[in-house]
Simulated scan of single mutants.
Amino acid sequence: MGARRIDRPVPLRERVYQAMQELIISRQLAPGQHLVESELAEMLGVSRQPIREALQLLNTAGWVDLQPGYGAFVHAPAPEEVDQLLAVRAVLESESARLASTLVDTEGVDRLRKLCAEGEAALDEDNTEGMVAANAELHRTVTELSGNKVLMDFVAQIDSRVQWYFTPIAHVRGHESWREHAELVDAIERGDTEGAGRIMREHTERTRRAYQKQVEEGPEEEPQPQVRSRRRRTAR
């Protein structure tokens, strides 16, 4: 008889890591922003030790840059870094869409249509966080519907980065992005393998170009810092 494994609580440093990653993805901590341990500790309701440990983890994962003598800064991705990741995303997700259309799933299609409606509603409400969340979940669902676990693993590895890059252009892509999503869902529903792959490829390419255009036109507007008032109490 095998012993039942005991669930271990998530270490505090990992919970702090997750909280800070969310703030970076949502741009509440902006690219290039100096991260002060004491301010982060006060904001998240923890001591400086888990903040320091989380910063090390974020540095290893590429979310934060640690500069000796200067401190920690939110990583500011170079244009080619973003371009390369979004190019890989286009390859992976166009194949996901193609495969999803060969395994038409009525329940899955209904989920996709619901997410399209949620994304449109978030756009109308000027809710960037809601738009980014609905967009990420829709793309994640398409990959799940592909039935290919290897694709799911690869897409999961870049999912957070895609959300980070999409956040500042969510409004730029606007209704056009959700019209493209609706066309994609239609293609998947009717089993149009070639069409689904093409629509997803063109959709992800337009997002990539929108990000490139924003970079060329100048740095994004700094978000108003809300983090000081967003105090999150985490168990010590």
Rank of each mutant, 00 (worst) to 15 (best):
A3E: 09
R4Y: 13
R5I: 03
I6S: 11
R13H: 15
R15H: 08
R15N: 00
M20E: 02
Q21V: 01
Q21K: 07
I25G: 14
S26H: 08
L29Q: 02
Q33R: 01
E37G: 11
S38R: 09
L40H: 11
L40R: 10
L44M: 04
G45Y: 07
V46S: 03
P50E: 07
I51T: 04
A54I: 00
A54R: 02
L58C: 05
L58R: 08
T60P: 07
G62E: 05
W63D: 03
W63S: 04
V64C: 11
V64M: 11
D65F: 06
L66T: 10
Y70Q: 12
Y70H: 11
G71R: 00
H75I: 00
A76D: 13
P77Q: 09
A78T: 10
P79C: 10
E80H: 14
E81H: 08
V82I: 14
V82M: 14
A90N: 11
V91K: 05
E93H: 11
S96N: 05
A97L: 02
L99G: 00
A100Y: 06
T102G: 13
L103W: 15
V104Y: 11
D105P: 10
D105H: 09
T106Y: 14
G108W: 04
C116I: 15
E120M: 09
E120R: 13
A122F: 03
L123S: 02
E125I: 10
D126E: 14
T128F: 12
E129C: 09
V132E: 06
A133H: 03
A136Y: 02
E137L: 15
T141Y: 11
L145C: 01
S146C: 04
N148K: 04
K149S: 15
V150Y: 10
M152H: 07
D153Y: 12
R161W: 14
V162H: 00
Y165Q: 06
Y165F: 15
I169F: 00
I169C: 02
I169Q: 04
A170W: 01
A170H: 00
A170P: 01
G174A: 02
S177L: 06
S177W: 02
S177N: 07
E180H: 01
A182H: 00
E183H: 12
L184F: 02
L184A: 04
D192T: 10
R198G: 04
I199Q: 04
I199S: 00
I199P: 03
T204F: 14
R206H: 13
T207Y: 10
Q212L: 12
Q212T: 14
E216L: 07
E217N: 13
P219S: 13
P223K: 05
V227S: 14
R230S: 07
R231C: 10
R236L: 07
R236D: 03
R236T: 06
